[in-house]
Computed example of a mutant assay.
Amino acid sequence: MDPTDIPVNVPIDDPNADTEWNDILRKHGIIPEKPPSPTPLIEEALEEARRLAHENRLEGKDLDELAELEDEEDEDFLEQYRRKRLEELSTINAASVFNQVYHLQKPDYSKDVTDASHKAYVCVLLTSSQGTNVESRILIEIWRELAQRYGDVKFCQMRADLCIEHYPEKNTPTVLIYKDGDIRRQLVTLRELEGRRTKTADVEQVLVKVGAIRHGDPRAKREVDATEHTDSKIRRGQSGADEDSDWD
């Protein structure tokens, strides 16, 4: 055997260290090339995130909030956002053709819901058949508020047993969100939200996630911020409280 073919145990303290010895070993293929440091990539990503955050710092702010920033922001930059908000509001007003809760009849369900969902999101609330379900009463009130606020979304309501024969009372209220003829989201009772503590903003967030409400919609922002603040205080001050205590 050629002596040069005999394997040699090369001492290596740290294969990733920047040493002259490791450079020689890498040159001869004894140890692999050192992988590139992730630090520059991380710094580049952080810098890009900071840049985007700065560029979009006015996203979601309404006209009143923009007015409060007149002393802090460039006037031309603010004016751009004012025009953008006014265009958004104009589009919203033009699309607001519903603005009420529609009470459904079973023979018209296909026309008023499935067919209508090809033009707009349609949200159907199936309420308690006995009229005594607390969660149904909560959602009925939320439905009225949302219908008035989001006129470009069609909010409908119907007693569950009149829609689906023998529909279980324990499954009410049920929410069905339609778009383009299909059910995009379904909620059975309020257990996926906050139960009897469910607020309008909680339902708004469901609508945002499904696409019925645009993320950053100025109509939702103030309510969401206020609710998050209130819920935060509740969690801090009443973390051990019974969920049903308000309804005893």
Score class of each variant (00 low, 15 high):
1 M>L: 11
4 T>W: 09
11 P>G: 12
23 D>P: 00
31 I>C: 11
33 E>M: 10
34 K>G: 03
35 P>D: 08
37 S>R: 03
40 P>I: 05
42 I>W: 03
44 E>P: 00
50 R>Q: 14
55 E>W: 01
55 E>T: 05
61 K>C: 05
65 E>T: 09
68 E>L: 13
69 L>E: 12
71 D>G: 01
71 D>V: 04
71 D>I: 02
72 E>I: 01
72 E>L: 10
74 D>R: 07
75 E>A: 13
78 L>I: 08
80 Q>P: 02
90 S>I: 00
90 S>C: 00
97 V>L: 12
109 Y>V: 04
115 D>Y: 01
117 S>W: 02
136 S>P: 08
138 I>L: 14
142 I>S: 03
145 E>K: 13
150 Y>P: 04
153 V>M: 12
157 Q>E: 12
158 M>H: 02
159 R>M: 09
161 D>E: 13
167 Y>C: 12
171 N>Y: 08
176 L>R: 07
177 I>A: 09
192 E>Q: 15
192 E>K: 15
196 R>K: 04
197 R>K: 07
198 T>E: 01
198 T>Q: 09
211 G>E: 13
212 A>H: 07
213 I>H: 02
213 I>A: 04
214 R>F: 06
215 H>C: 03
216 G>T: 01
218 P>D: 06
219 R>W: 02
220 A>I: 05
222 R>S: 13
226 A>S: 15
229 H>E: 15
238 Q>F: 14
239 S>M: 14
240 G>M: 06
241 A>T: 04
244 D>A: 10
